[in-house]
């Protein structure tokens, strides 16, 4: 067996990478941080944006998969994070998706629910933004929004049910 095959054979099954001592770990931390900081200075804007987009995508996916009782206002929080990746001013995002800045402000401040058209515009905008990221489905914005709404509606039955029950009856005909 040649040297290259031997390396593949050994390397492919895995590694024991555990630190043998705290000194080992501490030395590693220092040298790694030094070299990483030097590299960070050379990171360009596109690389930072890609990293932030993947971070947002993974956070949204996690939100959809984990049982979560803290669903309130997550859609808006994710939307704010998304806007912050690209824009200094929220008005510029409103202009890019052709809506009134006032409407965006109301949605972000929970004074108005986003309608279908708004979510569709976010979807199409995000498809352009995520063009360098594999395995991204813009439909996640719809799922996020309705995930939150369904959960809120069902979990708040104690609040809406008494009044609704007063209004609803089943009239048997005949």
């Amino acid at each position: 067996m040649n040297k290259e095959s031997k390396i593949i054979l050994e390397g492919d099954f895995g590694i024991d990478s555990r630190y043998k001592s705290k000194i080992d770990k501490d030395q590693d931390s220092i040298s790694l941080l030094e070299s990483r900081l030097a590299r960070l200075k050379n990171m360009n804007a596109a690389q930072i944006i890609d990293a932030k987009l993947i971070q947002l995508k993974l956070q949204m996916e996690e939100f959809m998969t984990v049982q979560n009782n803290e669903l309130h206002q997550k859609f808006v929080l994710f939307l704010k994070s998304y806007i912050d990746i690209f824009y200094v001013k929220q008005n510029d995002f409103a202009e890019d998706i052709n809506i009134q800045p006032n409407l965006l402000s109301k949605i972000l401040n929970h004074h108005r629910e986003p309608n279908d058209e708004f979510i569709q515009k976010v979807m199409v905008h995000s498809e352009k933004a995520f063009k360098n990221i594999n395995n991204y489905s813009s439909t996640i914005w719809y799922y996020l929004y309705y995930h939150e709404r369904i959960h809120n509606s069902i979990s708040k039955q104690n609040e809406w049910r008494p009044e609704i029950e007063k209004q609803v009856k089943l009239t048997i005909i005949g």
Partner: peptide
């Protein structure tokens, strides 16, 4: 940072 401690594949998935 996340440090990988151990990583392996099952024996039938090792090597050539």
């Amino acid at each position: 940072r996340i440090h990988v401690r151990l990583l392996t594949v099952s024996i039938e998935n090792k090597g050539l």
